[in-house]
């Protein structure tokens, strides 16, 4: 009997259920349609849209290690910074003028750092991890500061002139090219991340986050998997850093700052961990919030960011996300009820 005729298959719907795990949902399509429409809808807000796009990519990176693999990092800015400076230096010294190629090289530079440092990060438990990740970012910042003849120190890299993307699309004054460029990179990297998290590899990461002891007991080499995702995430963060440099033609020491790593955690928990869109939604909410707060109280907006963090934790992240999901789920239940009522109505003569 061929496999598709086996009787239990119909009963259990295994294949369907497995397929469902990675199926594109209408909400996702809506999200990306809106993102695409932003190009036309907000022609005067390209600057902030671009920032949202590379921030989203950066958060996506954190979500891969924190949301999926459970690695808490206080120094994810390290990879962002390496990407930012690599892209900046490549463009400034005309080593690689074409942005996409420079972007890839910057990502790879961060990736190498991620791979090397992953062994340090895997070495300890939670607390040691926090310290080591924080320490690495601070160390890089210190290095960038010491070698100010290369990095420009506190003033940062200045005088970067970006060449056209792929030699075709000139960066314009309004930032339209920047935004489209960042959005395309974000989308492609999102597709890759989506592929990764729904693969056997991605599932094994979630298992490790849940219970590393059991994961090892069913034959999963825990540290090797964590090293792999940490390296991949470093690549993502490097790309995000490079995009930020390329879109602003600037890179300064604060790419490595603790505040950047801490803000990143906030952005991710605003949107929620472990489903990829959390980072994207968080990036949108955070940037808009920052925009509003910065206009309202330019010097002290960090107070409100801090307050949000405190309240978020006190209320409970899980509870908060239940509340936000309540609306859409309520609508879905009502729709489902209507649908089944309609079906029942058809059946009764």
């Amino acid at each position: 009997m061929p496999w598709y005729e086996m009787p239990w298959r119909e009963r259990t719907g295994i294949v369907g259920s497995l397929y469902d795990l990675s199926r594109w949902r209408w909400g996702e399509m809506l999200f990306w349609t809106l993102a695409l429409m932003a190009i036309l809808l907000f022609p005067h807000r390209y600057l902030i849209l671009t920032e949202i796009a590379w921030l989203a990519l950066f958060v996506l990176s954190l979500d891969l290690i924190l949301g999926y693999a459970g690695i808490v990092s206080l120094g994810h800015a390290a990879f962002f910074g390496v990407g930012a400076y690599t892209a900046g230096l490549l463009a400034l010294h005309h080593i690689i003028d074409e942005p996409v190629l420079a972007l890839l090289v910057a990502g790879l530079a961060a990736m190498v750092l991620g791979f090397v440092t992953s062994f340090l990060v895997m070495r300890g438990a939670d607390l040691t991890r926090l310290m080591v990740t924080l320490g690495i970012a601070l160390l890089l910042r210190e290095l960038a500061n010491r070698f100010s003849d290369i990095t420009g120190g506190f003033d940062g890299l200045q005088g970067i002139v970006m060449q056209p993307v792929l030699g075709l699309f000139e960066f314009d004054l309004f930032g339209k090219t920047s935004f489209i460029y960042c959005l395309v990179v974000l989308f492609l990297m999102f597709l890759l991340a989506r592929r990764i998290v729904h693969s056997p590899f991605g599932l094994s990461l979630r298992a490790i986050r849940n219970n590393p002891l059991r994961a090892a007991a069913i034959g999963i080499p825990v540290n090797r998997r964590l090293t792999a995702i940490y390296t991949i995430a470093a690549f993502y963060a490097g790309l995000a850093g490079a995009l930020s440099t390329q879109s602003t033609a600037l890179a300064s020491l604060d790419v490595f700052s603790f505040e950047r790593s801490a803000d990143l955690l906030l952005v991710l928990v605003i949107g929620g961990t472990g489903y990829l869109y959390g980072g994207l939604i968080g990036a949108v909410v955070f940037k808009l919030l920052q925009d509003v707060l910065a206009t309202w109280t330019p010097q002290y907006w960090q107070f409100w960011i801090g307050l949000i963090l405190v309240v978020l934790v006190l209320i409970g992240r899980e509870r908060l996300h239940r509340w936000t999901r309540w609306g859409p789920e309520r609508i879905k239940t009502i729709l489902d009820a209507r649908k089944s009522a309609a079906v029942a109505g058809e059946k009764t003569p």
Partner: peptide, 24 residues
């Protein structure tokens, strides 16, 4: 009794608040 991530977020929030408040 919360996990380390919550503790980190919470206390970082307090740091941000204290920095801005003292500055003010």
């Amino acid at each position: 009794h919360r996990n380390h991530l919550d503790q980190v977020l919470f206390t970082v929030g307090l740091v941000f608040m204290s920095v801005a408040a003292v500055d003010y």
